[in-house]
């Protein structure tokens, strides 16, 4: 699969590094993350809390919180470096060319503004639409994300909608200006499982209809299995594996990915007596080991893992499946 030649890259993040200022001095939260999104592709970004997955995406839009800043790398979106843009240019990209859906629909909507107005906001700002036109479009958008009685809902306040409906509104806002890229940061984590299924369903439908690229950030490997084309696995601020979706679930190459997949109880299998688990906890930023960040928890770590950081390289010498592990070749052989 000649990814980089065949398809046009929409987003190309290289060696992104992000630091936070703590009372013990600066600490690296994101340590050289590189990832790409092709046109029309859905990318899953997987990792546990604190791995830097959300900050990576926030940094692209200049939305990092105080005391956290980008200290290196580039993020090329449609040929322009997002990280080098002025605030004014970035504002045009935000909500215009890149839509964002946050985790918590309860707190991400302004509670005192009617949802119609909130959906219209990006249209008024980015598309210079008149109010009447924007309102009409907002109604269409709400219908598009499957909100029943969409037109009447425009005048509702967020608290009058359920969590699932609010998340649909968030998606409608994210999609308002036909963005080339939609970044969804754990959009279903706060929702119940039947509502989660509804949201995943609607996103799949919208993708087929609108053809935008999606970056779906999550901690749930099961959730994205049927949704994404490619998966990037993050651990402690670095990419440890990057593979097409089938390849990742069938032949995970990194011990962390393998551990994660093994620790998920499966609904379709009979419950095993003991789940395999990864011991220990992820290192905090600023306390990460010198070598491979996963080495202290890795069951097959050896001396070199504690000294050097492995580079992200193709598993079989070439191809789209890349992994950052010294022992990956041996794992692949042992499995084969």
């Amino acid at each position: 699969m000649a990814r980089k030649n065949g398809q046009e890259l929409l987003l190309d993040v290289r060696d992104l590094a992000i630091e936070v200022v703590t009372r013990n001095g600066p600490a690296r939260i994101v340590d050289g993350i590189s990832l790409t999104v092709e046109k029309g592709e859905t990318l899953g970004v997987v990792g546990e809390s604190g791995c830097g997955k959300s900050l990576t995406m926030l940094s692209l839009l200049g939305l990092l919180p105080n005391k956290i800043s980008v200290i290196g790398g580039s993020a090329t979106f449609k040929g322009r470096d997002l990280l080098a843009m002025s605030h004014k240019e970035l504002r045009k990209v935000r909500g215009g060319e890149i839509g964002f859906v946050f985790q918590d629909p309860m707190t991400s909507l302004n509670p005192v503004v009617r949802i119609g107005q909130q959906v219209m906001e990006p249209l008024l700002y980015h598309r210079n639409m008149g109010r009447a036109e924007a309102r009409k479009r907002a109604g269409e958008l709400l219908k598009l994300v499957g909100i029943p009685g969409a037109e009447e809902r425009l005048d509702n306040y967020p608290h009058e909608l359920s969590g699932g409906m609010r998340q649909r509104v968030m998606i409608a806002i994210g999609l308002a200006c036909d963005p080339a890229l939609l970044i969804a940061d754990e959009p279903t984590t706060a929702l119940d499982v039947t509502i989660q299924a509804q949201i995943v369903d609607i996103v799949k439908e919208l993708r087929a209809k609108l053809g935008m690229s999606i970056v779906w950030i999550t901690h749930d490997l099961a959730l994205i299995a049927g949704l994404v084309d490619r998966v990037v696995v993050l651990y402690a601020g670095s990419v440890v594996e990057d593979a097409p979706v089938d390849e990742l679930y069938e032949n995970p190459a990194h011990p962390y990915t393998r551990g994660l997949l093994a620790s998920i109880p499966r609904l379709k299998d009979e419950g095993a007596e003991k789940l395999s688990s990864i011991g220990g906890t992820p290192p905090e930023p600023g306390r990460r080991p010198a070598g491979c960040p996963f080495a202290p928890r890795c069951p097959i770590a050896r001396a070199e893992c504690e000294r050097a950081v492995p580079a992200l390289e193709p598993v079989k010498g070439e191809g789209a499946h890349r992994v950052a592990c010294f022992a990956a070749g041996e794992i692949a052989e042992a499995v084969a």
Partner: peptide
């Protein structure tokens, strides 16, 4: 498992 859980907490 418990032993593994401790392994790196000892760093703190």
């Amino acid at each position: 498992m418990s032993d593994m859980a401790l392994k790196q907490e000892d760093v703190r």
